[in-house]
Design a protein around this nucleic acid. Structure first.
Lengths: 196, 196
DNA sequence: TTGAAATATTAACAATGTTAATTATATTTG
DNA sequence: CAAATATAATTAACATTGTTAATATTTCAA
């Protein structure tokens, strides 16, 4: 019954693809079971044959977006010499991904997922997304003794919380008011955590 | 026509009070025009005679909650000697207010307010809430040269972003998993910013 | 080809926010 | 005080939402 599986996966992907498009262009509040079905070319409620509910479908998009975000961040730092500066640039790139696609920030950090037990992998994917995107850069800096901290995990957390907090304020509360100031602010915060 | 005004304000307060109760106990997703009206003792749509829409009503609660949060934080640090430790304790108290009332965190930081021009004061109220709650403590530390930074505003921001980011992860993404670890984590992050 | 299984669609519900129409209440005026 | 008018509250009605149950359609093996 391998055919069944590949067909089912294809169907799932139609819906996931449609959902991703709406998420990126219009944001999560425009993702409805009707709008997704429209774009996927099926009637509403067909989705329920392949996903438990709308939340289930939406969170299938997370892994895809994480990979996109990772690639997006890689692209911004090619030809940059390794070191702390590269690490910072990658953190900035990570932040800029969500500024380009605010709907994905909402999905990642603001949306509450219904049942939290079966979705632990998704939760982790999101929670550790920055760390995972910057894994190579952290490793390089550590291996070459560029970070003289005994508590690297604490530093990583600090970066994570600052980036997410700043994004939250910027995207949801309009402070700072302009993109340029946001960029400066984030850089300054990173310099405070990682001097040199 | 002062009577009109005081009567209108009383009516508004009935709805605001009802909304606040639901926000604190059940969270923002249970705030509906029907549930509020029920609790206020009026029919649904009566609200529309006093507020532009539901969002308008909901954001009338912000100032009240901010004051509550301020009082809540003051209470936790009475009899604590002035200084950096007191500042940190107050930041912790601020965070704990939102842990006690997660619905208010949602309202403050997650909810998007419709029109952002007329609501600038509300936006500021929220964005600067931590700074305002801790204003006395920051001033004391500065006046007594306990903070040897030239860039205090940057430090304040860092605290703000870390606290908000950590709360976002804890309340929405279940990391860390327990309240105790959250408390430790926040303390550790604060110690990183404000050593001594 | 026909009957059973899988899959898609339509119909229907309850809950939401909001507007328009209608009723009840208060206020002003003759 | 009574009638006219303005104000305020309620009911009715709509459009959208997510979701379930009932049907219709397609697929596929016997």
């Amino acid at each position: 019954m391998k055919n069944k599986d590949v067909q089912e996966m294809r169907m799932k992907n139609y819906f996931i693809q449609a959902t991703k498009e709406i998420l990126k262009s219009e944001g999560i509040k425009h993702v409805s079971v009707r709008s997704v079905a429209d774009r996927a070319g099926y009637s509403y409620t067909t989705m329920y044959n392949y996903f438990k509910d709308l939340n289930d479908l939406v969170f299938y998009c997370v892994e895809d977006f994480f990979n996109e975000c990772k690639v997006f961040s890689e692209e911004k730092i090619t030809n940059t010499p390794n070191g702390i500066e590269k690490l910072k640039l990658k953190v900035l790139a990570y932040a800029n991904y969500f500024i380009e696609y605010p709907g994905i920030f909402d999905l990642f950090f603001l949306e509450r997922m219904g049942d939290l037990q079966q979705k632990q992998s998704t939760v982790d994917s999101i929670s550790l997304s920055l760390d995972r995107v910057c894994d190579d850069e952290w490793s390089y800096c550590l291996d070459h003794n560029l970070l003289k901290f005994d508590n690297v995990e604490l530093i990583k957390s600090q970066v994570r919380y600052v980036v997410t907090g700043l994004l939250l304020f910027y995207l949801n509360r309009i402070t700072p008011t302009t993109y340029v100031v946001f960029q400066q602010r984030l850089k300054a915060q990173l310099d405070l955590i990682l001097p040199g």
